[in-house]
């Protein structure tokens, strides 16, 4: 009888734990992503980065926790005012990106993240780093678009690069607007679901489009 009880308990708990685990993962990700969308301060981003890191350490086959930990670190690099510290955040972001990469090879979103990390490094010294890291970033975006030609995030980031870079150094304002328009179309067609997959970028695409419609942008 005792054996039966134990068997029954284990029978009941086994499927329970596995489904609970994935449910728990989904819930934990959703909860942290809700905070991620509104995180503005460095301390909240560091906290979120650590949260994603802990989830990643447990969920050994999921790339998203490390992807978002990398996004947090990349945002921290962009927020960092002390230029001597930017690289240490970017290094951290790169470590997370490569961990995500090893779990999900050839992922367009991860290539796009890598591009943004390169761009973050330019802020250390615009003059000496601009040419090298904008080229590395453009190359990563290139790869992202090859891996998924319809990744709107890669398009938005590329559009921002095309808009800000001087002509002759890869800048092309007309192309920036075309890319932003295409990204915006893809965003509109994508159903807004409850997903933990990357969804960012829509507002940036719209902001870019708005600038394109201003008459000054036409020249």
């Amino acid at each position: 009888m005792k054996a039966l009880v134990i068997t029954l308990i284990s029978l009941v708990t086994l499927p329970y734990t596995t489904s609970a685990q994935s449910d728990k993962y989904q819930k934990a990700m959703e909860k942290n992503l809700a905070q991620f969308d509104t995180a503005r301060t460095a301390s909240s981003l560091i906290g979120l980065m650590n949260n994603f890191d802990r989830i990643g350490a447990v969920e050994k086959s999921q790339w998203l926790p490390y992807y978002y930990a990398g996004m947090c670190a990349m945002n921290l690099a962009n927020k960092e005012k002390d230029k001597s510290q930017i690289d240490s955040w970017a290094d951290k972001a790169e470590v997370y990106a490569s961990r995500a990469d090893s779990l999900s090879p050839n992922n367009s979103e991860i290539s796009c993240l890598k591009a943004t990390i390169h761009f973050a490094r330019i802020n250390v010294d615009f003059m000496s780093r601009g040419p090298k890291y904008s080229a590395l970033g453009a190359e990563a975006l290139q790869l992202a678009l090859k891996q998924n030609p319809n990744n709107p995030r890669a398009m938005v980031v590329l559009a921002q690069l095309k808009r800000s870079a001087p002509e002759g150094f890869g800048g092309d304002k007309a192309m920036a607007c075309q890319l932003a328009a295409k990204a915006a179309r893809i965003f509109e067609q994508t159903p807004a679901g409850n997903t933990i997959n990357p969804t960012w970028g829509q507002s940036s695409a719209q902001a870019l489009l708005k600038k394109c419609e201003e008459p000054t942008a036409q020249k």
Binding site: G47, R54, A57, V58
Partner: peptide
């Protein structure tokens, strides 16, 4: 807490 999501900063 190793092996769990639990922890803090």
């Amino acid at each position: 807490l190793d092996g769990t999501y639990d922890g803090a900063t």
